[in-house]
Computed example of a mutant assay.
Amino acid sequence: MSTVIEQPVEARLVAAAPRMPNIPATLRYDRSEPFAVRMTFPAQATLEGVEVCWTFSRELLAAGLEGPEGQGDVRVRPYGYDRTVLEFHAPEGTAVVHIHSADVRSFLEATGDLVSEDREHLQFDLDRGLAELMRDAC
């Protein structure tokens, strides 16, 4: 069984220019980081010309399907039934993208099949993590 789920999605950048084209993005979930989701935009889709990756909680993404969520760098909210809005706040500015809610739902379902929300804490190897921390302490 795979320990990583990746799902390509089409994101529509909300900007002042009318009808911005869709940009590719990827939602990624790794069993080794059970609370986190990554959304990656390829270099050709960014102003800087470098890949951009945002990490936020799976719980935030799921809750954002139902209502506005988030107070920090990443905020999620529904936009009608078929769209989800993700806002990414950085010192350089804010990016707002729309993605299909059905894509988010299928992604979250796949992550739940891999690691259910009530079992996320069981994915950590605390002994190994503590050993790594202690290794550098001496």
Rank of each mutant, 00 (worst) to 15 (best):
A90M: 02
V96C: 12
G129F: 07
D127Y: 01
D30W: 00
T84I: 14
R19K: 08
I5V: 14
H89L: 10
S32V: 13
T40S: 15
E66S: 12
D127C: 01
D118K: 05
T55C: 12
G67H: 13
D136T: 07
Q71D: 13
V9N: 01
R119I: 07
G49M: 10
A63H: 07
A16W: 00
D103S: 12
A102T: 09
D82E: 13
L61T: 04
A15K: 00
A63N: 12
E69H: 00
T40W: 06
H100T: 12
A90L: 02
Y79A: 15
P42Y: 07
S101F: 13
S2F: 06
R31N: 09
F88P: 03
E132G: 11
E10R: 05
A62F: 05
T26D: 04
E10V: 10
M20C: 14
E10K: 03
R119W: 06
P18G: 05
T55W: 02
F88W: 02
N22A: 10
L13P: 11
L65H: 09
E48G: 14
E117P: 05
L130N: 03
Y81F: 15
Q44L: 14
L61M: 08
P24H: 11
T46P: 09
A11N: 05
P18R: 01
D113Q: 11
A36I: 01
P42I: 07
Y29R: 01
H100I: 07
E6C: 04
R77G: 14
A25P: 09
T40M: 10
E120G: 02
L86C: 08
E117L: 02
T26I: 15
E69K: 01
A110D: 03
L122Q: 05
R135P: 00
S2P: 15
L65A: 11
D118E: 14
L27F: 02
T26N: 06
P34T: 11
E48W: 00
